[in-house]
């Protein structure tokens, strides 16, 4: 079957934006970043290919400690987000009906129309030494002096979980909503209690939502810059901050590129493993 030439031309025109976009703004920049991470400066304007930047990452404890710390904190934040979001999502999906259900669901989404910067600013006002929580504690007599609640790991965690909530609640509500009530009733009729019904019926059904929510939350947390920096202060030790320091403060683009590539590899690996374990594909997850 031969296609009229003008239609082939149309197809080529349709290709133009995606080729420009993916090649010039996504693929080539990342290839270039990889190449730069593989070179070292031997003299002004002279470079040699080497793995020295990666070697520096593994030999300097500060770097790989920060990397490991970022990964562990991200996993913790993901688990906490899941544990906090699950009962709420279940409540919205199964315990309420009609208008109040729509209302509660939309209420969950509202904070996320606001910039992350504003949300973090809110937490700073709440948690700082002269802030609301500290004043409440003093007023209620629980502490006898003002306490600084900012600039520690717990503050970072509160902020990260807060910022991630939407990306967990939406997939959870969607999957739990599709669970037929009669399956839950059947579980009870067959002698199950709340725990066994939860474990054998509800959680297996919600697994795709749990998986895609956790993947997205982990990825966003790992790449987060604002929340750890503002709530954790100078000692936040977040890996994206290391990348920023190498690029903008130290102007060491070679090492910075190596860091960027390592973070990209970790992030993609976790997404890939998560998708494989839950038996999903990226294309299916975004639909």
């Amino acid at each position: 079957m031969s296609t009229p030439p003008q239609i082939r031309l149309g197809l080529l025109l349709l290709f133009a934006p995606i080729v420009f976009w993916l090649a010039l703004l996504v693929i080539l920049p990342h290839v270039d970043m990889l190449l730069i991470s593989l070179r070292v400066r031997v003299a002004p304007r002279e470079y040699a290919t080497s793995l020295a930047n990666y070697a520096e990452f593994f030999t300097e404890p500060l770097y790989w400690n920060t990397f490991a710390r970022t990964a562990i904190m991200s996993v913790t934040a993901t688990v906490m987000t899941l544990l906090i979001a699950f009962p709420v999502s279940y409540y919205i999906a199964k315990m309420v009906r009609g208008r109040s259900k729509t209302f509660l669901f939309l209420l969950c989404l509202t904070p996320f129309w606001v910039s992350e910067l504003v949300r973090t600013f809110g937490w700073m006002i709440l948690l700082r030494e002269t802030g609301i929580v500290s004043s409440l504690l003093l007023w209620s007599g629980l502490t006898d002096a003002r306490v600084e609640l900012l600039y520690n790991d717990a503050a970072i965690m509160v902020g990260l979980v807060y910022t991630s909530m939407l990306f967990m609640v939406v997939p959870l509500v969607t999957t739990l909503d599709s669970l037929d009530d009669s399956l839950v009733e059947a579980g009870y009729d067959l002698g199950g209690n709340s725990f066994t019904v939860m474990r054998h019926i509800v959680i297996p059904h919600a697994m795709p939502g749990i998986a895609s929510g956790s993947i997205v939350v982990f990825m966003l947390t790992l790449g987060n810059y604002l929340t750890p920096k503002l709530l954790g202060g100078k000692d936040s030790l977040w890996f994206t901050d290391q990348i920023y320091t190498q690029f903008i403060t130290r102007f060491n683009w070679e090492l910075g590129s190596a860091f960027g590539f390592l973070l990209l590899v970790l992030s993609s690996a976790i997404v890939w493993i998560g998708l494989k374990l839950s038996g999903q594909t990226l294309s299916a997850t975004v639909r």
């Binding site: 703004l25 920049p29 970043m33 790992l222 994206t240 683009w253 590129s257 973070l263 992030s267 993609s268």
Partner: peptide, 14 residues
Amino acid sequence: VIPGVILGISILVF
């Protein structure tokens, strides 16, 4: 799935 910071630096480098 590319963290925003990395997308930024890769475009900067390129």
